[in-house]
């Protein structure tokens, strides 16, 4: 594009000011643009970076000097430590909260995907009365704030003994994630080639066989994108965990545990910085290892209610 444009005579472009050549002006422009972007990137990165640096500093250094001074004394002995992590993971129960987060997140991701995939296939390729109405209701439900569900479900859970159990929160996340999951998978599954599905039918495959052998394997990209979105959403969620699981140490997830730490030890920065970073490890690993799927998943999932 630019190569072709460069060969054309630029006779109508405004003449460069103050006797600079076009090349010089382009260089100056490029320096300005780079400088602005560097500034913005620094602005966006410094908050997280400061937290990360602080979490590795000894307790008395954190409270006596800013984290930015750590680089001056970086090579002195005792400038860095892992004690903060040791203490949050064991003494402050973040280690157990990490396990709880895993235990909440994995089923809360797998179950809605399974149920949504079946439903999405039926809406896309099977004929049944009320098909379109079902789909439209689904689309409507996607933006309903989950705040609308909290109190009635809380009462329902109290009546059935599901409050404070992992099963209860799996089901809740399944319910809240289902409209979006079905909508996204429908979008993908309905765009599979008609001929393919038709050929399977002609060959005598039942809908179930078509779904399990053909549609599901082909939908892997959409499933992966939604899985990442749902995984992060559940992992980072505070409200649902707070309401249905509570803050008891043996069930508390990372987010509730961290918010408890903020409330009880709001000035203990050696605990809070390390604690916050423990909650961020998993999302950051996903972010850096699966960035392409991650972005796609977040894009697709951004309308969740």
């Amino acid at each position: 594009m630019t190569a072709i444009a460069g060969k054309q005579p630029n006779y109508k472009v405004a003449p460069p000011k103050s006797g600079m050549t076009i090349k010089q002006q382009a260089l100056i422009n490029s320096i300005i643009v780079n400088a602005i972007v560097i500034l913005l990137v620094l602005l966006w990165t410094i908050p997280t970076f400061g937290l990360l640096v602080s979490s590795f500093r000894p307790r008395d250094l954190i409270t006596s000097s800013g984290w930015w001074t750590a680089f001056v004394t970086a090579f002195q002995s005792g400038a860095w430590t892992l004690d903060n992590y040791r203490s949050v993971l064991f003494a402050d129960a973040m280690g157990s909260a990490f396990l709880n987060s895993m235990l909440v997140t994995i089923p809360s991701t797998v179950i809605p995907i399974t149920i949504a995939a079946f439903a999405a296939y039926a809406i896309a390729w099977l004929e049944f009365p009320g098909r379109k109405a079902f789909f439209l209701v689904l689309v409507g439900l996607m933006v309903v704030p989950l705040q609308m569900s909290l109190q009635p479900l809380f009462s329902l859970y109290q009546a059935t003994g599901l409050n404070g159990t992992f099963l209860g929160i799996w089901l809740a996340h399944t319910g809240f994630g289902l409209p979006l999951a079905t909508y996204l998978l429908f979008g993908y599954i309905s765009s599979l080639p008609v001929d393919l599905i038709e050929a399977a039918r002609v060959d005598g495959a039942t809908p179930m066989l078509t779904f399990t052998r053909l549609v599901l394997p082909l939908s892997t990209p959409a499933i992966a994108a939604f899985a990442i979105f749902q995984f992060l959403w559940v992992w980072n969620d505070l409200l649902v965990a707070l309401v249905f699981l509570g803050t008891r140490a043996d069930v508390a997830v990372l987010t509730t545990r961290l918010s408890e730490l903020v409330a009880s030890r709001g000035q203990a920065w050696h605990v809070l910085t390390a604690g916050a970073f423990v909650t961020m490890i998993m999302p950051l690993v996903v972010f850096f290892s699966l960035q392409r799927f991650f972005v796609r998943g977040l894009m697709a999932g951004s309308v969740k209610g």
Binding site: L40, P47, L51, S54, L272, G275, P283
Partner: peptide
């Protein structure tokens, strides 16, 4: 780098900014 905060929970972001 600018997209990275999207991966962080609101609670985690809260701690970052309280600091």
């Amino acid at each position: 780098l600018i997209f990275l905060p999207m991966a962080i929970s609101f609670v985690g972001a809260g701690v970052i900014w309280r600091f």
